[in-house]
Write a protein that binds this DNA or RNA. Sequence first.
DNA 1: CGCAAAAATGTAAACGTTTACACGAATCGC
DNA 2: GCGATTCGTGTAAACGTTTACATTTTTGCG
Lengths: 374, 374
Amino acid sequence: MPIPRDARKTRRRSNAAAATIHDVAARAGVSVATVSRVLNGIAVVREETSRDVRAAAKFLRYVPNVAARSLSIRRSQTIGIVLPDVHGEFFSEVIRGIDLAARREGYHILVSGSHNDPGEMLEVVETMRGRVDGLMIMAPDVTLAPIEELMARELPVVLLNAAARTGDAITIDNFGGARAVMRHLHELGHTRVAFVCGPLHNADARERLRGYRHAMRGMETAALRALEFQGAFTEESGFAAGQKIAASLPRPTAVFAANDSMAVGALAAFAAAGIRVPESMSVVGFDDIPIARYVAPPLTTMRVDIAELGRRAFALLLDIIINPAAHTARRERVATTLVVRGSCAVAKSASTRQTRPHRAARVPGSGREKGEVL
Amino acid sequence: MPIPRDARKTRRRSNAAAATIHDVAARAGVSVATVSRVLNGIAVVREETSRDVRAAAKFLRYVPNVAARSLSIRRSQTIGIVLPDVHGEFFSEVIRGIDLAARREGYHILVSGSHNDPGEMLEVVETMRGRVDGLMIMAPDVTLAPIEELMARELPVVLLNAAARTGDAITIDNFGGARAVMRHLHELGHTRVAFVCGPLHNADARERLRGYRHAMRGMETAALRALEFQGAFTEESGFAAGQKIAASLPRPTAVFAANDSMAVGALAAFAAAGIRVPESMSVVGFDDIPIARYVAPPLTTMRVDIAELGRRAFALLLDIIINPAAHTARRERVATTLVVRGSCAVAKSASTRQTRPHRAARVPGSGREKGEVL
DNA sequence: CGCAAAAATGTAAACGTTTACACGAATCGC
DNA sequence: GCGATTCGTGTAAACGTTTACATTTTTGCG
């Protein structure tokens, strides 16, 4: 449908449709190339011309058409984020961290959540292809990990918090964090420490378990297994585990829950069972979610800087996008920090005075030590 | 740089760059128009041709270039979501709800959070223009509301949970919910009910306050004001308010906190002050955030179906996008549900037996009644 | 003042789709 | 059996940018 350009232009200006670069060029009395150059600051343009163009653009409320631009430069200035189907503020924090970093660099983020099976995830990745310059995939489930490796050659991909063995990834220092928690409990004199485990298909859960076991090494396996309770990272499962722990004999003096939600559930179970925390039972969590400091008693936990996780992941992804050839796979680890609150006390059998734990306990901010990584 | 088309095509197929519709057409021995028709199911194409095209596309791992498509059809199949700079699972739930609904309709979502001043928000909206087919703006702050009205004529916009007086919007039934909470407390015999208010620039907070005051009507203003405590929707502010309430004389028999976070904070304050809940003090929250059921005692609260909020907002936005001309502004309200847990009991002065509140209390799911809306 | 070099700007192809219109081949009614 | 439909397919313009190259204007220098 060949419409003469000038006719088209007339129509365009008459109704309310958005102004194009041609409109700006016409109004400023220059060519589209010049307009493009001015607006992108790409080449030397005479000061006066530049002013005219800017004025025309402003007057027409010109906004470049992103699709056309993407088509031309073959980049979308957008990255995709694929999240698993899990709720909670963990994810909003991750998005926040990424968004903050991305906006600084002029990138937008396309989000898709709610996928826990490889098929659906692959489908999402497929529809994002071509729409994004790079992909960030959060796949804590070990069973999901292999999929992304397929994509790696086609699109820059960073795995968040994942179990994959290859490619670029950012993970939380779960192992080191778990060991630091255990060290804290040991310093308080606890030796009989129960563990509430997260879902076993979750890579974070596994690593935390590994840290726990590493600290408990020397115990015979049977005795160790008796101290481990299965959970699912939910308050509910933590509550159930807490009930079992309350009923177990001999009862542990401390509980390390693999995340805060389960710790909160366990706390509720102990309260219901009449077990006082921290006097008769010490409890530690992992993540430092916001309510951790408002439960009774305030929860001692391992803080994970989630926004930092997002920030670092974006930096890594950008590095790949900018120079895919020169990039060599990196795997980074985000440190964790012990936050001491009121849910732990000196073990009954081991202590004399109430003040000792305060000397022994790490102050917030020093939770991770040199050389404790894997 | 005029490169003959066939030369270009050769280059293209030789290195690893993505296949285009031309490659598919060439391989299937048809024209690009036919390929487009097959892949979009837009017109009648002979079964055999269709098969060939599909096979060629599959073989070449063809994925349509979204930018080119957007440019051509002048739509991006993407909607933008602008969130304020607030954390917490409320937002991840909203995104979840929208994402679910959007994906079903083949839409993607572009997210941008972290804006609490009009300037930054406007900037974000500006950069999203042209990139999205419609916008969803969450602006609980009354001061932010006016901005979007500017945009309304340029781009389909739905306000979530906002204070604007015009345009399309989805809001929570804060007023009705607050009244239902108060009715529940009245039925338990409470007349001296304190209120912990959210930030006054927040429209949700204002409506909940209005519901509270409506229920307390008949009280003289001075006495009423003495029962209102300022908070900020945070646990911390709830804790502070709880301390003040604990010290106030005569002490209220119940507290209605404008959100769960503050209710949790107040609970902690009462525990610290030795005030037993629910025996000496009833507490109700608003939102039903996940931990609500795991604090001690489990919190009675008003549930807001957040995912539903997102779902309805998307449906509304889609309606505008599809037929902007025929659309007439709608303002919808999402209902809330009273969830009775253990944080409320019959008022001391009014009751005889412990069982009565259970008869009087509404069961979960029946919190909202006909005719109680504004 | 004249000419070469540098600077500023213009021209038009390319990015990969969609789709109005054109066109040839079946199919139909009589 | 032959014009009129219908059906299937192809051709090429259009979407709004960017940018290589061409062209014009300015500047510098003898």
